[in-house]
Design a protein around this nucleic acid. Structure first.
Lengths: 150, 150
DNA sequence: ATGGGCCCCGGACTATGGTACGGAGTCAAG
DNA sequence: CTTGACTCCGTACCATAGTCCGGGGCCCAT
């Protein structure tokens, strides 16, 4: 069983068959070889790739971003310098996400331990958990803004 | 300057004015007091709340999930037990995300250090970075499946 | 008292990421 | 060699999360 058919890949990766076709159209999955009849024959590692895509999405990356991430692997050699830049940027983004999730984790943990004692925790600070992010994009979206007198 | 108007909140939080109205309709921002004219007067901490929402989204939470997260804070007392369950589930989810991001970070770091030396890294394993997730939802989406003979 | 800039609202529109549909061809067990 | 499950394709549709529009009302500096 060297190759897989669409339904098998879909099943193993936990996605809809249509999703595979969709990814192919989007270019995030490259077109697999076909047999004479036109049936796709997927290499088995496609399953891992699709799972990666789904999980990366759950971590807040868009399909485009996932694609870039995956292309880091394929592209190497040739434009190595540009790849490096992208990888470094992604790395920082990932580290930022980790920091923020750690902060959320901390405040959720606090909430749980406080709620445990039936106290008034009116100030359980979930929101503040991400405020280390404060100026990271606060107050400027890059969109043009009209100044107003006041 | 005790309260803020929509444009100010939007500016400070880095979102579109329409987004605030949208969040209000969705119930993720509660309706602020209005002055006689109908103008909204936001309490300043709205800005933090909106930033939290945006950041949580970037971490892969849907608006619905963010809402639940925020309600953990508000809801306490009364249905404390149910809240606890939700908080614990979220905590696990967050820890899972952190683990996965750490894995991505690791493989990106490896990729960077390998690319550095101009080597052939045909096997840079970005994809495997999330495969610790393997069976976490692989192979079963809960959708009904028809068995086929082969 | 007036005008430029904000604010109100409902409703239409957009982008992203899929999902569903339907008619036709393929595969393999009986 | 039929039949039921699977596959193909294009196109239409869906949910989420906004974003824009346009007609009308406020606000206040000049």
């Amino acid at each position: 069983m060297a190759t897989l058919r669409t339904a098998q890949v879909a099943e193993l990766a936990g996605v809809n068959v249509e999703t595979l076709r969709f990814y192919e159209r989007r270019g995030i999955l490259q077109e697999p070889p076909r047999r004479a009849s036109g049936y796709r024959e997927y290499p088995p590692d496609t399953v891992e790739r699709v799972r990666f895509i789904k999980r990366a999405q759950e971590l807040g990356f868009t399909l485009k971003e996932v694609q870039d991430l995956l292309e880091l692997r394929e592209t190497t050699r040739a434009k190595a310098g540009r790849v490096r830049k992208v990888a470094e940027a992604k790395l920082e983004e990932i580290e930022h996400k980790i920091r923020d999730l750690e902060a959320m984790k901390k405040s959720l943990t606090e909430l749980l331990s406080t709620c445990d004692g039936q106290k008034t925790i009116a100030s359980c600070p979930i929101i503040e958990s991400l405020s280390g992010c404060e100026r990271c994009r606060g107050g400027d979206t890059g969109r043009p803004k009209k100044e107003h007198s006041r």
